[in-house]
């Protein structure tokens, strides 16, 4: 019967898939299970201190409202950054896919994926130079704008959002571009021949048909941004305490790995929950 694998095909598939699954097991599940194990301990089992099993690390999350508030702050950050990436990235992908042809498209593509090529620390410190008071941005505005301009974006939530949007924008552009590229030009022309204006075509045809790509990009941005710590720490200053930075502190500064691990798994659970709750919407969009 078509669609089912014979025993021989199955064996061959298993042989071909084995390296990938082996790698996934080693690289993802083993470290993650180790972390899951740590999260139920009183201390990381590296020193001489006696180690016991406990739920206190998970209880810590619920004992004060601090962690929950920070998590909510991080989720809001994720929504802001995802929203900004969609608003900037989707029109960009639309122009790339439908308006520009040939070499100009290649050049613009290169610019889009440029953030991927630079080290993230370098990228973030570059933003710091641009955004700080009397920095590149302030001076440039001073030069063209009459009067004294003090944006002082550095060490504000806005700076964090700008840095994160810059880092994650390519995901939305690339996934949207691929989805838009797959839309036949005939479809747009057919709609025009039926009297549809640009906005109608965008709203009734192009957007619904490219929604799977847009949503995939949004998920790719939202999930890592909620757990991000580098951009908040460097660009956020005293506003820069987020859920991700607290987790980082547990591992790097406080050396309380079990608490860091427990907070990470709570984040994982919450992100999965959010995706799970929104999955009916996502799935409808993907169809």
């Amino acid at each position: 019967m078509a669609g089912t694998l014979s025993a021989g095909d199955g064996r061959r598939a298993a042989r071909l898939l084995a390296p990938a699954y082996l790698w996934l097991t080693l690289a993802v599940f083993l470290p993650l299970s180790a972390m899951l194990f740590f999260s139920f301990l009183t201390a990381a089992p590296f020193g001489d201190k006696p180690v016991e099993a406990t739920l206190s690390n998970y209880r810590a999350f619920f004992e004060t409202s601090t962690y929950a508030l920070l998590l909510w702050k991080s989720i809001k950050l994720g929504l802001w950054v995802t929203g900004a990436c969609i608003l900037i990235g989707y029109p960009c992908a639309l122009v790339l896919a439908k308006q520009i042809r040939g070499r100009a498209r290649e050049a613009l593509f290169l610019l889009v994926i440029l953030p991927f090529w630079s080290n993230s620390l370098v990228r973030i410190f570059s933003w710091a130079i641009v955004l700080r008071g009397n920095g590149v941005l302030d001076r440039a505005l001073d030069a063209v704008w009459p009067g004294d301009v003090r944006l002082a974006l550095m060490f504000t939530p806005a700076a964090v959002v700008i840095g994160l949007v810059h880092s994650y924008l390519p995901y939305v552009i690339l996934t949207s571009y691929l989805a838009l590229q797959a839309i036949d030009d005939d479809i747009v022309e057919a709609a025009r021949s039926l009297g549809a204006r640009r906005l109608t075509i965008l709203w009734r045809l192009v957007l619904p048909l490219s929604l799977p790509g847009l949503l995939a990009g949004a998920v790719l941005v939202f999930v890592p941004v909620v757990g991000s710590f580098m951009e908040p720490r460097i660009l956020g200053g005293r506003f820069g305490t987020y859920y991700g930075t607290v987790i980082e502190d547990q591992f790097v500064a406080v050396f309380n790995w079990p608490l860091g691990a427990a907070l990470s798994f709570i984040l994982l659970a919450v992100v999965l929950l959010i995706l799970g709750v929104s999955s009916p919407v996502l799935r409808r969009g993907m169809q």
């Binding site: 479809i187 709609a191 021949s193 039926l194 009297g195 549809a196 009734r204 045809l205 619904p208 048909l209």
Partner: peptide, 26 residues
């Protein structure tokens, strides 16, 4: 004008009735 394309260019996300009614809606 009314135009029919070689590829038919039907709107895949819309039903047959919505496809046919597209030009009336606009």
């Amino acid at each position: 004008i009314g135009m029919m394309f070689q590829s038919y260019a039907l709107f895949p996300n819309l039903s047959v009735a919505e496809n046919v009614g597209f030009g009336l809606r606009t």
